[in-house]
């Protein structure tokens, strides 16, 4: 019975074996992702009757486009900030050995032990009117009275960066770790100073990891909900909050579905653009 899932050599899986192992994954993708997405998108064009009216509403009202553009902007900020913070950490990790790597990895993964909600709430505590940061600023005399930190775009960007940065560190670390130490020596003996070695050798070879991390963080940021909802200003809403509001407060499923449609379109276009410029197959392979 089991034999049928292996090829005659007994080491490689047969087609039946591969299909069986992949089945749960495809089932999950289909029932938990594709089916709901397609039914939601069909609501956007079929209700209340077959129409593009819901999409016209998105395009006509500048507020909705503003929310969309703001979402893209915040996602970009978070991605860039994550990259700036993650690269040195990944570099340090790739340069370290044994217990040091384990320690840094633990520092990066430890926050995952608490939920996003907890981490977001922690930022609310820090950033509130009489929170640690405001008190600290006054103590060292930078400000004379509490500054509005909570419920701002800045708070959203900082907290989202905190939550999403690990997704940037790991792919960059993977790419850096695959670069043999001899490459730096080879570049140096060829006459490259450390800065040029970085630019001509390390940066190009790390690019797949950077792109991978960037896409991961950027796309996750686009649909981020809890952090903007709890730390952001209602006047500066992001698109996920808007969609949730349409569903829960106005029960306007067709319009919410149209917003999802627009977001999906953007995500698809951006992903395709990235994969066109930087090939995905190389992204996974790393430097080697």
């Amino acid at each position: 019975m089991i034999a049928e899932f292996f090829r005659p050599d007994g080491r490689h899986l047969s087609k039946a074996g591969i299909t069986l192992l992949m089945l749960p994954f495809f089932a999950l993708i289909f029932f938990a992702f594709l089916y709901p997405l397609v039914s939601l998108l069909s609501i956007s064009v079929l209700e209340p009757q077959p129409t593009l009216e819901n999409y016209r509403k998105v395009v006509d009202n500048p507020i909705y486009l503003t929310v969309l553009l703001r979402t893209l902007w915040i996602a970009l900020l978070v991605s860039l900030l994550s990259l700036a913070l993650a690269f040195p950490v990944a570099w340090l990790m790739a340069r370290s050995k044994g217990p040091k790597v384990a320690f840094i990895t633990a520092c990066i993964l430890l926050p995952f032990w608490s939920s996003v909600l907890v981490r977001t709430a922690a930022w609310a505590v820090l950033l509130q009117r009489h929170g640690l940061i405001n008190e600290g600023l006054q103590l060292i005399g930078i400000t004379s009275e509490p500054v509005r930190l909570l419920y701002t775009q800045g708070a959203v960007v900082v907290a989202m960066t905190h939550v999403l940065m690990p997704f940037m560190v790991l792919p960059i670390y993977g790419a850096l770790r695959n670069i043999p130490a001899d490459y730096a020596r080879a570049a140096a003996i060829c006459g490259a100073n450390p800065l040029r070695t970085f630019r001509e050798v390390y940066l190009p070879l790390t690019m797949p990891g950077i792109i991978g991390g960037f896409i991961l963080v950027f796309l996750t940021s686009l649909g981020y909900f809890i952090t903007p909802a709890l730390l952001g200003s209602p006047q500066e809403m992001m698109i996920a909050t808007l969609i949730s509001q349409q569903i829960r407060e106005y029960l306007d499923w067709p319009f919410a579905a149209a917003l999802v449609g627009v977001l999906t379109l953007f995500v698809t276009v951006i992903t395709l653009a990235f994969s066109k410029v930087f090939r995905f197959d190389r992204m996974m392979g790393g430097a080697a």
Binding site: P180, D182, Y183, R185, A186, I189, P204, L205, A288
Partner: peptide
């Protein structure tokens, strides 16, 4: 100085 390393160390990109 010119140098050749044990592993080929050609830049793959």
């Amino acid at each position: 100085i010119g140098m050749v390393f044990q592993h080929y160390t050609l830049f793959p990109h």
